[in-house]
């Protein structure tokens, strides 16, 4: 890609990641949450892929790392929900097991932030892995 595209995406990517981090960490305070933020993270990486090529990005975030990361995300969610079940009897139990906090602060509303982070890991890595796969895919020769 041309120099302009490279420069712009180099500048844009941190901003996108920052917005994504805001959306995720404030998922229980303002709009959005793990899913939206996760997709935004994936978008940032896809922008990098478009600008610098797949090899550049895959050298930093490998395919198997993506696989591990998204499994990690799903596992986090299930474990957090299980903790709720072990200590609070009900699966997904939130307030009562997790601290209530002070509404409006980042660390409030109990386990929501954990779920949002887990979802972010799952969603962003899932889309990224699928995208890697799509780009690497070539039609079968017969």
């Amino acid at each position: 890609m041309s120099l302009i595209v490279k420069t712009v995406s180099r500048m844009l990517t941190p901003v996108m990641l920052l917005v994504a981090a805001y959306i995720i960490l404030h998922g229980h305070i303002t709009h959005g949450g793990g899913f939206q933020g996760g997709v935004l993270v994936a978008c940032a990486f896809i922008l990098l892929i478009i600008a610098f090529g797949i090899d550049y990005v895959e050298a930093k975030v490998s395919f198997s790392f993506g696989q591990a990361f998204r499994s990690l995300g799903a596992t986090i969610i299930i474990i957090a929900a299980l903790v709720g079940m072990v200590f609070g009897f009900w699966f997904f139990k939130n307030v009562g097991v997790y601290p209530y906090g002070f509404p409006g602060e980042v660390f409030s509303a109990g386990s929501l932030i954990i779920y949002n982070l887990g979802e972010m890991a799952n969603v962003s890595a899932s889309f990224l892995v699928a995208f890697y796969f799509l780009i690497r895919f070539r039609r079968r020769r017969k």
């Binding site: 303002t30 949450g33 939130n94 307030v95 509404p103 409006g104 409030s108 509303a109 109990g110 929501l112």
Partner: peptide, 13 residues
């Protein structure tokens, strides 16, 4: 739940 974002609370709680 103690979450300002009601949608987030519904979605995850």
């Amino acid at each position: 739940v103690g979450a300002w974002n009601a949608v987030g609370a519904i979605v995850w709680d």
